[in-house]
Amino acid sequence: MDIMILRLSVLLASACIAGASAPVALAASPDAGQARRIAEQYVAGKQSAGGNPQETYEAGDVVITDLDNDGQDEIVVLWTLYGPTYWHHGVAVLAQQGTRYVPAGETHEPLGSVEAMTVRDRVVELKTKWPGPNDPHCCPTIEKTLRYRWTAGKLTPVK
């Protein structure tokens, strides 16, 4: 029994020494479940900072992708603010800073009614609907696709 403990100790020491000279790897990208939890924490922070008890926030689509081709994935979150008689969509980018993901930028323009979000070729694409001339507020019918590129810490519209 003592010999097995000694061998295990030698094996662990060898692994530690070998690991000490190996290059340090960056943290792995979050899986879908982790990214969802990170997005929900971000939205919960918006909720607590909002100050209006009649408003709630909800995380919608969450995409893990490398938006700026730097080798580190960002988390793109489609979120919704619900008020008593209104709603508002937004898109936020959460970037890795050390071992955490932190807000790095978000849209600040009207997005209409966002039905889906995808990311292709580092461009965030939103499928939206906007009100037509005779549409009631609840039911927009004009389809638009909005595209944003992540540059210098902000989402910039792509024409």
Rank of each mutant, 00 (worst) to 15 (best):
A59S: 12
L8F: 10
G33H: 07
A49M: 12
T56K: 15
D68S: 04
M4N: 15
Y57H: 09
I5F: 05
L12Q: 01
T56P: 04
A44W: 13
P23A: 02
G45S: 15
C16H: 02
L6T: 05
A49K: 15
T56E: 11
S14P: 00
S29C: 07
V62L: 07
E40T: 08
S14W: 03
G51S: 06
R37Y: 07
P53T: 04
P30G: 05
D61Q: 11
S48Y: 09
L67S: 01
A32H: 13
L6D: 09
A59F: 01
Y42I: 00
L26P: 01
K46D: 08
V63W: 02
I64E: 04
G50A: 13
T56V: 01
A49T: 10
Q54R: 05
G45D: 12
A28Q: 14
L6V: 08
R36G: 03
Q34V: 05
V63K: 13
V62G: 02
A44Y: 13
Q41K: 15
A20H: 06
S21L: 10
S9F: 11
E58W: 04
S21D: 01
L11V: 04
T65M: 00
L12M: 12
G45P: 08
L12P: 01
A32Q: 15
V24T: 07
A22Q: 12
A20W: 14
A22R: 08
S48Q: 14
S21T: 07
A22P: 02
T56Y: 11
L11K: 01
V43K: 14
P30S: 07
A32R: 14
Y57Q: 08
Q54W: 05
I5M: 09
I64Q: 05
A18L: 15
S29I: 02
L6H: 06
P30M: 07
G19I: 00
A15H: 03
Y57I: 02
A25Q: 13
P30C: 06
Q41N: 15
Q47M: 12
A49D: 13
G60K: 09
A39D: 11
A15K: 02
G60F: 04
A44G: 11
T56R: 15
V63T: 06
L6C: 01
Q34T: 13
D68R: 02
C16D: 01
N52L: 06
Q54S: 05
Y42L: 10
A25C: 04
A22S: 11
R37W: 10
L11T: 06
G51M: 06
D68N: 15
I64R: 04
S21C: 03
A39S: 14
P23H: 04
A13W: 12
R37D: 13
A27Y: 10
D61C: 00
A59T: 00
E58L: 08
G45F: 11
T56D: 08
P53Q: 07
D31L: 09
A35I: 08
A15C: 09
